[in-house]
Write a protein that binds this DNA or RNA. Structure first.
Lengths: 201, 201
DNA sequence: GGCCTTGCTGAACGGTTGTACAGTAGGGTC
DNA sequence: GACCCTACTGTACAACCGTTCAGCAAGGCC
């Protein structure tokens, strides 16, 4: 075998290569937002040629939808009641830590959210994922109330809890240095307890 | 005067024209996010030629920084204690309504936030504006606690309140239909009162 | 070793991007 | 009406955008 016989590229199984492109897409979003999510950038990062995105996803928008799913999946997995539902206190703790509190992560979500209204496939994916997210929180609040004899309005409360966690996450990401996250978090939990009762299991 | 003598364009005072470009930039961001914030788009919307942005702001990034300032200004104006500080209850109400709860507004802020880390001028502007925002809320909470003999930790509490408002605003913007904003808002206020005491003046 | 499927490449395309700059013309001043 | 300052235009430019597609080649199978 001479040197010129070395393979110029490696062939992967279709779904394996697709996953590589999705990961490269996530990296691009994290690094430079939607502006950096270009065919050139993504393919270069994935170590593939410019044509691959069209080949595997039909178009750039197709890849973006897949990227959105991939971004949401691990968060849902963390709070999903697979091995039995989490206690409310644990759930909220998990929600706080489900996403990294840094700028790259923020940039990824800002970019994705900003495209939801424009990209129909993304909008559908968002409704599905967020609905699932909210249903889990609502279920946990309802169960919490039942087990303690509290009459809780689970719907609006779930929205409030999610808003609190998201808002805190947002501020913390935007300005990581100038934000005392631990104290803010304690203050938030202190805000929830008078309404929900003690959160310790 | 013949028809051909009609002026081809109108001359404005420099700062007036600059304001027109900033407004056009805001409109573009609201409509299509950072992707729609192009020299072509902005100038067309402002009724000017492609060269004007460079002429007035040096570059596209220069304009973007000016746009950020312009986006923050009205919100700060609403909560700024010009004619005496607002009572905490009033302040929180104002915070809830300071920004429109719709997709265009969301898209504008997502786009701006996403660029903060990339654009140094934007980062500086954000720190200045957000610091001012937070100082106002902190001051109101401290005053509230003093006047009622409560020992409040104003710093973390301010961060929590801002997070709550921002998070609620975020969810509401992302999915305006599927979100019962009034009940969520009531739930949020109900969450604050046990910590802060009654918010009515 | 030869065949064959298909993952993959890479050039070509028309369109859009931001910036530069030479030149035009609006409109106040005299 | 002549002058002048400068706000402004509009073309030219090189770089980059997403999509298309004809054809190459990797690597399993016989």
């Amino acid at each position: 075998m001479t040197i010129s016989d070395a393979p110029k590229f490696r062939r992967y199984a279709a779904e394996e290569r697709a996953a590589m492109l999705v990961q490269a897409g996530l990296d691009c979003l994290a690094e430079g937002g939607i502006t950096a999510f270009t065919v050139d950038n993504v393919c270069k990062r994935a170590g593939a040629s410019r044509g691959l995105i069209a080949h595997h996803f039909g178009s750039k928008d197709g890849l973006l939808a897949a990227v959105y799913e991939a971004a949401y999946a691990p968060m849902l997995a963390k709070i999903a009641p697979e091995t039995g539902a989490l206690a409310l206190g644990q759930l909220i703790d998990t929600m706080f830590d489900a996403e990294a509190h840094d700028l790259p992560t923020l940039r990824t979500w800002l970019a994705l959210w900003g495209e939801i209204a424009v990209n129909p496939a993304l909008k559908a994916a968002h409704r599905r994922n967020y609905g699932q997210y909210r249903a889990i929180v609502e279920g946990a609040i309802a169960a919490h109330g039942r087990s303690r004899g509290l009459k809780l309005d689970a719907g609006p409360l779930a929205a409030s809890v999610i808003a609190l966690v998201d808002g805190l996450w947002l501020e913390q990401c935007i300005d990581p240095e100038g934000f005392d996250s631990q104290r803010a978090r304690t203050a938030c939990l202190g805000m929830l307890e008078p309404v929900l009762g003690p959160l310790d299991p």
